[in-house]
Structure formats: C-alpha cells, structure tokens
C-alpha cells in the first residue's frame, strides 16, 4: 500500500498529464466523428455570448457590403416578381395543409472560420427560434452548410468547407447526381464526386442542390464547374466547383425548416427497420 502511494506521489505529474491527455484526445477523436460532443462547441452560452459581442462591433465594418448584398437580393426578387410569365399563376401552395412546406428562419453569422480542415460557423439563433440539428443553411447566393449543434440562443453550422460535409448535388441542366465534398485546399472551390461518365458536362455548367436530401430543397445554387477530372479506376467524374458564395464573408443567412422532414425521416426509418 505504502509503495502504491509512493508511486502515485512520485509520478503525480506524469499521471495527471496522462489523465488530461486521455481526456483531450478523447475529445479530439470525438470531434472527428460525425456527431460531436455538445459541450465543446461555440453554441454554448459563454462562447456564443462572446462572439455575439465581438460581432456587434465587427458588423459596422462591413455594413456596406452587407447592404449591397441585401439590395442585390431585393433587386433579384423584384425582377422575379415583375417578370412573372403569367400573372394569374400564383405560386403553388401546399393545398392540403394550406401553408408552405418550407419555412425560413432569418439568422446572422456571428463567427466564421475557414482556415482549418473542419470549419464551423456560429449563428445567433437557436432552439427558441425553432432551429434544430440537420437543417439546411443558405444565403442569397447559395448554400452555406448544415446545422450541427444547437443551444437555446445559438447554433453551430457545419460549413460546406468541412471535410465531414457531404451534400447531395446535381448538374442543373442534366439532373445527374453527385456528392459535394471539400478537399480542404481552397476556400473558393468544392468538389463534386461520383458523377457518372454518361453525364454531358462542360466547364461553366451550374451545380445546384439535388432533391434527394431532406435537408435542402431542390435547385438551390451552389456554383459552376471550373475543372473536370476523370477517375480511371471508376467510371466517375470528379469536378471542381467554383462557389457562388464567398465563404470568407458571410452576413445574413436563412435556415430552412422543412415541414415534411419528420415524416420523411420516419418513413425512411421504417423502411430500414423492415
């Protein structure tokens, strides 16, 4: 017994080091798996609050660019409104429920990261506004990411500039599907993999979100094709996509709340169980 105590006293620093190293490595490994621990995220009260304070100061510095972006978006919406082909055709509503199938929550990016391999954003709306995990986040130019963790007032987003992110996307004109990933190299480009060789593609073609995921609605802009690689082993293309969005400069974003989501997920779950 005495010897055990002696051993512990003598090596107390080493043991403490190993204990703390174990905890931190565990957190690291957990962070690289898909569902992460909730404690070490910038959506909690302390970090979210600090980021909101910092952001309220930073906001003044890029008020002009944000205003320009919002004005541009307004102009685009106006032109859509005035140039409707048939003024009697009102936008289709989901007639059964009498409400739109998708709801939009307006939110603001209060912290943005883009310099590491796994990037996250922090938004200033949370559970109280109805934000839940796995909702899609977009802005006027294109997609931004997917909600990861939420707290009552804040939420974190897995940016599309994250090695873990994988989003269903398609080529706008031909409807060929692929998966959107990021290779961790440039903040302006993402990659679309697993596009079949049959697809007729050209540089400059537009890539939009596909309808296969419950997270994003169909036909939300992503970017244009800038480079085409062919994989010799498999019969697939890998495409470099130039993003419409400048991920290093994000202001207001929209969180998409799909009303059919629960139903779809439950249905797919049932299918799997059987």
């Amino acid at each position: 017994m005495q010897q055990i105590f002696n051993f512990i006293f003598k090596n107390s620093n080493r043991l403490l080091f190993l204990l703390l190293l174990g905890i931190s490595l565990l957190l690291t490994i957990q962070s690289h798996s898909f569902h992460r621990s909730k404690i070490i995220s910038s959506a909690n009260f302390l970090t979210g609050g600090v980021y909101e304070k910092i952001n309220s100061v930073n906001e003044y510095l890029n008020l002009k660019t944000q205003n320009d972006a919002l004005a541009l978006e307004n102009a685009a919406l106006k032109s859509q409104l005035f140039n409707r082909k048939d003024t009697t055709a009102v936008p289709k509503l989901d007639s059964l429920k009498g409400v739109k199938a998708k709801d939009i929550i307006v939110s603001k990016v209060i912290h943005n990261s883009y310099n590491v391999h796994e990037n996250y954003l922090t938004l200033n709306s949370g559970e109280l506004q109805g934000v839940k995990t796995d909702m899609g986040v977009i802005n006027s130019l294109g997609i931004v990411g997917i909600i990861d963790n939420t707290s009552p007032h804040y939420s974190t987003v897995i940016s599309i500039l994250n090695k873990k992110s994988q989003i269903n996307a398609k080529i706008k004109k031909s409807n060929h599907f692929g998966s959107l990933i990021w290779n961790g190299k440039s903040t302006g480009f993402v990659q679309l993999i697993d596009v079949p060789r049959l697809a007729a593609i050209r540089k400059g073609d537009t890539i939009v979100t596909g309808g296969q995921s419950v997270i994003f609605p169909e036909n939300i802009n992503i970017g244009t094709i800038s480079k085409i690689y062919t994989d010799n082993q498999t019969n697939y293309y890998t495409l470099d996509i130039k993003l419409f969005n400048d991920m290093t400069n994000l202001g207001h974003v929209y969180i998409i709340k799909s009303k059919d989501r629960e139903e779809l997920i439950n249905l797919e779950k049932k299918e799997k169980d059987e």
Binding site: L21, T28, S31, S41, N44
Partner: peptide, 19 residues
C-alpha cells in the same frame, strides 16, 4: 477549443507543450 469548435486539439497541443 470551445471558441474554435475544434474538439480537443488545442487542449492536447497545450498539454503536450506544458509536459
């Protein structure tokens, strides 16, 4: 780590340096 959403990488790196 909390502020940069990075799990435990800063904690590990700091701990290794301290040791």
């Amino acid at each position: 780590d909390m502020f940069s959403n990075s799990g435990g990488i800063h904690a590990t790196a700091c701990l290794v340096l301290a040791y």
